[in-house]
């Protein structure tokens, strides 16, 4: 499934500055959010750094997220990357916003992984329309 891990995919996604962006390391811990993400979902800049990606997922999705993430680490394949998915995202105040996620993964030369996603809010004051593109 090497084709899923396009070199430079994370950097390409980060450049979409108009969209909320979040990046996690190989353990699934958040290592980066952009100001747009913090603004749309109400998080203080840096508040999510070091926390699991599960922090921005509704509680009912967390078991599935952990199982899927663990599965990915074994198989290096996933069906959720490289196409838009509508999922709920948890805001700082605990509310949930339906957002279109576009997730990518990238494997570096040293064997480490990085996962990133742009999120397009589909409801709330920052809601936008139109499909995401990589």
């Amino acid at each position: 499934m090497a084709s899923q891990w396009t070199p430079g995919a994370v950097a390409a996604l980060r450049q979409k500055e108009d969209l909320p962006f979040v990046r996690a390391d190989a353990s699934g811990d958040i290592v980066e959010t952009n100001p747009r993400f913090d603004e749309v979902y109400g998080w203080q800049p840096g508040a999510l750094i070091g926390q699991s990606l599960a922090a921005i997922l509704p509680s009912s999705f967390r078991e599935f997220h952990h199982a899927g993430f663990a599965r990915f680490q074994l198989t290096e394949s996933s069906k959720v990357v490289n196409h838009p998915l509508t999922l709920a995202t948890v805001c700082r105040d605990g509310s949930e916003l339906q957002s279109e996620h576009y997730i990518v993964a990238e494997k570096y030369a040293d064997g480490s992984w990085s996962f990133a996603a742009t999120l397009r809010p589909l409801e709330g004051p920052h809601a936008s329309s139109g499909a995401a593109s990589p």
């Binding site: 952990h66 199982a67 899927g68 993430f69 663990a70 599965r71 990915f72 680490q73 074994l74 198989t75």
Partner: peptide, 13 residues
Amino acid sequence: LRQSLGLLQVAFD
């Protein structure tokens, strides 16, 4: 633990 969880998910899948 993560490896065990991953193996379980692989098996169920």
